[in-house]
Design a protein around this nucleic acid. Sequence first.
DNA 1: CTCGCTTGTCTAGCGGTGCTAGAATCGAAT
DNA 2: ATTCGATTCTAGCACCGCTAGACAAGCGAG
Lengths: 192, 192
Amino acid sequence: MSVQERKERERTDRERLIVATARELAEQQGWDAVTTRRLAEHIEYSQPVLYSHFRGKREIIGAVALEGAADMAAAVRAATSAAHGPRARVTALARTYLDFAARNPAVYDAMFRLDGGLAFAQEDTPEPLKDAFAALLESLGEVAGDGVHPGLFTEVFWAALHGLATLTRAGRLPPEYAEQRVELLVDRLAVV
Amino acid sequence: MSVQERKERERTDRERLIVATARELAEQQGWDAVTTRRLAEHIEYSQPVLYSHFRGKREIIGAVALEGAADMAAAVRAATSAAHGPRARVTALARTYLDFAARNPAVYDAMFRLDGGLAFAQEDTPEPLKDAFAALLESLGEVAGDGVHPGLFTEVFWAALHGLATLTRAGRLPPEYAEQRVELLVDRLAVV
DNA sequence: CTCGCTTGTCTAGCGGTGCTAGAATCGAAT
DNA sequence: ATTCGATTCTAGCACCGCTAGACAAGCGAG
């Protein structure tokens, strides 16, 4: 059975290579540049090989999104666990979130702007997505305030961060006052 | 000069037809369905005619976005002017904004999600966009609170609304608690 | 009223996209 | 060494945004 195991291993390796290459290519030249032809060329296989791993381009975007969600959750947890006190944790969370979106625009797009064919806010939502939301909830739930459902508060705070991230990157908000916006947001929304 | 005037009038009529058709088609079947071929067929001209009015598809999206910005500004002003008191105005503004995004998803996409080739937050920003922001500022500036720049406050509030609008429509936020989210947002952000 | 010319529109086509059917090749087991 | 199933590739489909060059319509001049 060793032969079969080797083949399976090679397949998962190749799948990882596809996702990593797609992410890299998207980060370097934008998602528009990630065509099935270019992607196939980069991994040194022909196009149809992609379709033996994924149903189509959308699923590849979805795979990048899941990877990104795990990364973001890790980044947020690292930042919040290094901060002392609820207020400091929330500020760190907000800065880290916006920083992640700014540094990984293609991954962020895969997660929230593009259609990766993923289920959200449902029972069959993939684990990494639920966990990323949980990472936000851990720190934001502390400052929801009395009588406010932590989940609802997290949704609102997250939406505000998402709006800042997307509008800033799309050139809709001038970048120079980014820090003041974060401070205002945390000051007003969080109940310390 | 009457002949030339007639031709000019016909041209602007046709341009309006193109924009209106693009908007309609996008609203009915999504922007992916708005191809230059289909659009040309709907207006009963050949494709190249589109390019005698616009540089390309992007500019058509931009034209829809400008039209949408004017519509949104009007909707917001109508709602806020019918409300009494700063707090009521802000609530009405938030509801109207989210309602507009939900009822005109394609137009909202043209304004904020797609690339319409428009300048933002700059001097050469088209008038309708500046005016739409101004419409938000008129009511939001009242509740920015002492020592907080009204423009900055408007940006943050707008970003929060934008985040709620996009995440809700993308299925990232369950729609049933939309009203509670708005109330929480207004409660916390606005200084009455 | 007719002619020439400008102006406007269309047909046809380019290089690209996501995706797939069927041919060709590889490699494991006999 | 040969067979045969699994794997990969070549070639192609229908569609995309966009454009060059052929064609027709309608104007002003004679």
